[in-house]
Design a binder for these strands. Sequence first.
DNA 1: AAGCTTTGCGTAATCGATTGCACTCTGCGG
DNA 2: CCGCAGAGTGCAATCGATTACGCAAAGCTT
Lengths: 333, 333
Amino acid sequence: MPHAVTLQEVADAAGVSVATASRALSGKNRVAADTVARVRAVAAELGYRVDPIARALREGSTRIVGMIVPVIGNPYFAQLVDAVEHELHRAGFELLLADSHGELAEESRRLTVFGDRKVDGIVIVPSHRQRSAGALRAVGAEIPLVQIDRSAGVSLADYVGVDNEIGLGLALEHVHERGARSLVYVGADDVTSSGVERWNAFDRTVDRESVAVGEPFRGDFSLATGAAAADALVARRELPDAVIAASDLIALGLIGRLREHGVEVPRDLLVTGFDGTELSQVLAPTLTTVVQPIEAVAADAIGFLLSRIAGSTAPVRSSRVAPTLLVGGSTAR
Amino acid sequence: MPHAVTLQEVADAAGVSVATASRALSGKNRVAADTVARVRAVAAELGYRVDPIARALREGSTRIVGMIVPVIGNPYFAQLVDAVEHELHRAGFELLLADSHGELAEESRRLTVFGDRKVDGIVIVPSHRQRSAGALRAVGAEIPLVQIDRSAGVSLADYVGVDNEIGLGLALEHVHERGARSLVYVGADDVTSSGVERWNAFDRTVDRESVAVGEPFRGDFSLATGAAAADALVARRELPDAVIAASDLIALGLIGRLREHGVEVPRDLLVTGFDGTELSQVLAPTLTTVVQPIEAVAADAIGFLLSRIAGSTAPVRSSRVAPTLLVGGSTAR
DNA sequence: AAGCTTTGCGTAATCGATTGCACTCTGCGG
DNA sequence: CCGCAGAGTGCAATCGATTACGCAAAGCTT
């Protein structure tokens, strides 16, 4: 083990004290220009790199940001992690990742650990619309925190997510245009903010004058929910013209299971998804879906977080990014 | 900010010195039983938790493990990260995640950062079969490291992956049984070890006496490669009876694009995938695929890593986990 | 009962970097 | 020629925990 170079060694080699060496390298105090040059040269030659742990102990800052997602296995969250990680690295931060598996206890345990480890900031997709609030408030009082995709209260901490109202509007308008006059919503329950918002958006936006709205089916955002919804739909007397799904996974699970029942999309039924994951664009039928601008969401969220880390005490902000509609085969006539 | 409780405060409150307090809490030195009880009680009451940073500085150990994957957006790697994270948490470690985007420079930069941050161990999916070796060797000399899924040399560091020979064997046997007498392999190029191994396994295992083998198509493991292969296949004079794909993404990309060309799977052509990702089992046709036992791979890999972290100097190990075949619609007759 | 071991605990060094304070030295004004 | 400003450095404290060492008191041996 080549024994990492310490500041002391650099100082000795340059013939100065550690204090001066530190100042020369950080460059924010008055040190003679030639001393700076000499120390820098020696440091480079010896391959000196600051010990982030020692610095963290002294500074109380780690240049690490923690992120908690409900389930990394969902491609949407995988893409979100990817985007967040990219933004963080650009800013010189590392990403400490944790998976709450949608469980409140796990989530709050992870938050505590992040606090103990003195991460500089936290990016979280809260697992619960209301019950996540307590832990978030507690940790958020100590550490800059931004909610992404879902929220546990927009007054709690900065939040960035997609505008679900616009998204559902796009989907509804599209299927209406394609002639659908009876609809069923298949989405997630009221545990998450997205679950609530998308349902409300659907409920408020749909024009009950001109279309018939069937009993909604609500579970979570998974393939399994889509499949279960398919079973339920088939069991009903008649099929709607279109199903508005609250996630791509739901839509895919639904389409797959419907086919097993002999119901073909879009022949017998139109379907729209939500998220715009890459995989939804591959198999037939390709999905008509509301595309979330993941990079933009991530960029905004990290922007908020970094400004908080930099000390901003601006009022809590909440930002909604507009999604777009990608028309695929699942709503073809 | 409620000012985190320090060991000094606990010691004062318990009427002992920090040294004794530390020993009482760690429990591995001789301290009077009642002192231990008193200190523990005070610590619990005050809500004391050790500062991981201070401890890390002193101990040189962080209880953090770094992981580098080529692309978290690939559902297979997302599942792998999930499994690894789960195993690590069980053992009390945190996960520092980085994405190399398949780039060597990025990979080696991340490795260096992990070294600086003094992670206790590293889990890596090397981006390059050969060129990743240098950086791995350098870092591996200092920090316990395990290669997972892909390798840059099994003599370099412990390795855990799937047995590609068995996997390809299963796929070949299956399509042969289903009557396929002409085959084309669509897989990844020689940049990664999986790319090489799967091709070699195919090449060696396929029985050229009884089946005709067409020109293989090789790119990476992505959807795009599958799509490109579909174009290439259609451009050839005639289609093979079956395509053996080296990943689920390739298979899905292939099937989707073939359909655009009017070629239906399995009607005109059988297709097998590799990985056993959840999504491959949803849309029609469901994929016949070689299922990787991801949990087992992750558990083995973390087992290796933890024993290294515990100080094992056993010879470098390399472990192959046997996959199984999941028969779906893509090879139905 | 003297001497030796063991037990229990405190003092202080240590990990590596940052920074407040104080000191020296040069230069310039009065 | 003296005094003072300010530039350039070094000393030492600090972040919070762990641990080698040493000392005092208690227990044991013969």
